[in-house]
């Protein structure tokens, strides 16, 4: 410990990186994702137009953006996140405080999202987008299966919660909100954002199946 100021502090930097990646770029991508799928609320044509707009981005640029701003950050955040989640012994039964329930949900949603995102990205991005392409008609028929629909709604709400609750914990982890009052305000704002995004997201999911 005597030479602790000389250490490289790898663990500290990786944890801060994990925290930052959850907001930028993953959180921003989630926002973009919800906005894109919410176009379906304006009808199937509006959704197809939004998909076409994204498809208009030149292929090489799109692939680069996807790898640098989505794939790599998601892998780092997901793999290191599993390591973090494994260091917790969940105890909301004994300590049923709201913040502890949020802590528990943050980890439960993480464990759901790992297989969900592998399935979601693997099927829709690699298989469907690589063949027939994403469209309102294709999504409607895909989500028509009630099991797929339920798993997607859970996945969407879980991702939104993980993001908005992550905004709250980010503000503490980075020492931005320190005292109980400001932490409570940030937490309420995060819950507000969760309600808005979840409402828009779930409504969009229902719009797909008409």
């Amino acid at each position: 410990m005597s030479n602790n100021t000389e250490c490289v502090h790898t663990d500290f930097y990786v944890r801060r990186l994990h925290s930052l990646l959850g907001i930028v770029p993953i959180g921003f991508f989630l926002l973009e994702h919800v906005i894109t799928i919410s176009q379906v609320l304006g009808g199937g044509h509006a959704f197809d137009a939004a998909v076409a707009k994204l498809a208009a981005i030149p292929h090489d640029i799109l692939i680069t953006l996807e790898i640098v701003f989505i794939a790599i950050p998601l892998l780092i955040h997901g793999i290191y996140g599993m390591y973090i989640a494994m260091q917790a012994k969940l105890n909301p039964g004994r300590y049923g405080y709201m913040r502890n329930k949020q802590f528990t949900l943050q980890r439960i949603t993480a464990w759901y999202l790992v297989p969900f995102l592998l399935w979601h990205v693997g099927y829709l991005r690699f298989i469907v987008k690589g063949s027939e392409g994403i469209s309102f008609a294709q999504m409607s028929s895909y989500l028509d299966n009630p099991i797929v629909f339920a798993l997607y709604v859970i996945g969407l709400v879980a991702a939104i919660f993980h993001f908005t609750n992550g905004l709250f914990t980010f503000s503490i982890t980075w020492g931005i909100s320190k005292g109980p009052r400001v932490q409570s305000v940030v937490n309420k704002m995060a819950w507000g954002l969760f309600v808005i995004l979840a409402a828009v997201g779930v409504a969009s999911m229902f719009a797909f199946i008409g």
């Binding site: 405080y97 502890n100 802590f103 503490i172 005292g179």
Partner: peptide
Amino acid sequence: SSCGNSQNCVQACPKQIKLTTYIAQMNR
């Protein structure tokens, strides 16, 4: 940085020490 912000500590402290506030200060 291994704090997960469950904030059970501040609820459990029998001396009402604002532990979460000081953890955030330390993060700063």
